[in-house]
């Protein structure tokens, strides 16, 4: 009971930290890879505290699809560059006025990193879940 309560609390903190790592990657240590691993660590914690069914109901993801989607996003980021007549995977960046955040630096590496993030989460969770399920 203590574990489950703590877990619910901790999971949020870990997820927020992982999201921070993910977004901060371009300026400070972090990035898609570490962010993804952190997120999966949070999910593993959930798996440890609750049984697999509960977690599956709360987060109904097929993690293989998550990994595939991440790979897809990364590739599409690269392909988009081709439409602007520049080589595959050329990135760009710029400062945009966003409604909530104000002036923000946005770069096209972010969706690429998002792909990395999703792949890492998908892969880590797939491996852990598959091994955990097997007899």
């Amino acid at each position: 009971m203590i574990l489950q309560t703590t877990t619910t609390l901790l999971t949020f903190i870990i997820v927020i930290f992982s999201v921070y790592l993910f977004f901060a990657g371009h300026y400070t240590p972090g990035g898609g890879f570490i962010g993804g691993l952190m997120t999966s660590a949070a999910l593993v914690l959930l798996l440890l505290a609750f049984d697999k069914k509960t977690v599956q109901n709360a987060l109904p993801f097929n993690y293989l699809s998550v990994a595939a989607a991440g790979l897809m996003i990364s590739i599409i980021t690269g392909v988009i560059a081709l439409f602007f007549d520049v080589p595959f995977l050329t990135h760009t960046f710029g400062y945009v006025e966003l409604p909530l955040l104000g002036k923000t630096a946005l770069t096209s590496t972010l969706p690429f990193d998002l792909g990395v993030y999703l792949v890492v989460v998908g892969v880590a969770m797939t491996i852990i879940q598959t091994i955990g399920e097997s007899e």
Partner: peptide, 28 residues
């Protein structure tokens, strides 16, 4: 040129993003 201050990450996703692409492919 890449608008990032984390050089490692910039190299990973921008200068040499191609490698990263296939590393995540390997993971998948």
């Amino acid at each position: 040129e890449a608008g990032g201050k984390n050089m490692v990450n910039v190299i990973l996703v921008d200068f040499r993003g191609f490698d990263t692409l296939f590393e995540i492919a390997v993971l998948t």
